[in-house]
Amino acid sequence: MSTPEIRVEGLHKSFGDNHVLRGVDLEIGQGEVVCVIGPSGSGKSTLLRCVNLLEEPQQGTIVVGGTELTDPDVDIDAVRRRIGMVFQQFNLFPHLDVTENLTLPQRRVLRRDKAAAEKVAAENLARVGLADKAHAYPSSLSGGQQQRVAIARSLAMGPEVMLFDEPTSALDPELVGDVLAVMRGLAEEGMTMMVVTHEMTFAREVADRVVFMDGGVIVEQGTPEEVIGNPKNERTRHFLSRILDPAMAEVEDVPGKTEK
């Protein structure tokens, strides 16, 4: 990887007194799939949200596809068109049907005409296996279907990078698989992806690299075999043992750890 697609340097972010990111450096190469794992409150979601500037960092540099997002004069709307974002809560537009959810951003932001936007929408709905739901409203879809529509909505904008913020955490367990399958397909097509997740199986099988965060810093990173299979750091081991075998974990008090 000569020039990284995403480059984060010395990132600091606080919400009031809460210092969430304490100096994060991270590079993601083109076509690389990076899973970010860590306990809640570790700052992993905040880091992801900084990468498309939904959160503005106090300090540090973020470069995506050669454009520095932290430059105060950057055209942030233009950069965000190249970065797809998938949220935990899907955030489909409830007043629009599925096709309109996909076409409205294309028409308003990319200025595509109606026919072209509808063609792209249909292609991307087929890609996530929901061609038959083109005219359903979000409220009539299951969580897994809504999340796949949300992924299709991002893809319809033709992004170079996709960010996933705990995309399966709000889903019933039996619906997780469909969403992960779509993400796996994307990864195989060579999409650059940054995924905040608790799905260790997905991280192990799909990720090129796993990043473990705790306390606002990157504690350990490497291939899935290294980080998940054979963690070096004590905090990583502790976290993994709790998440891989939650029934065996002991009660512990984690003060002031809250995350959206």
Binding site: F93, P105, V109, A150, M157
Partner: peptide, 30 residues
Amino acid sequence: VPKGQMEAARSLGFSPARAMISIVIPQAFR
């Protein structure tokens, strides 16, 4: 209107004004 609606619109490249007009206000009026 949930905050996620504005965030989703901004992530797709909507400007704040356009997101307000196309996404938030139609839902607010409902």
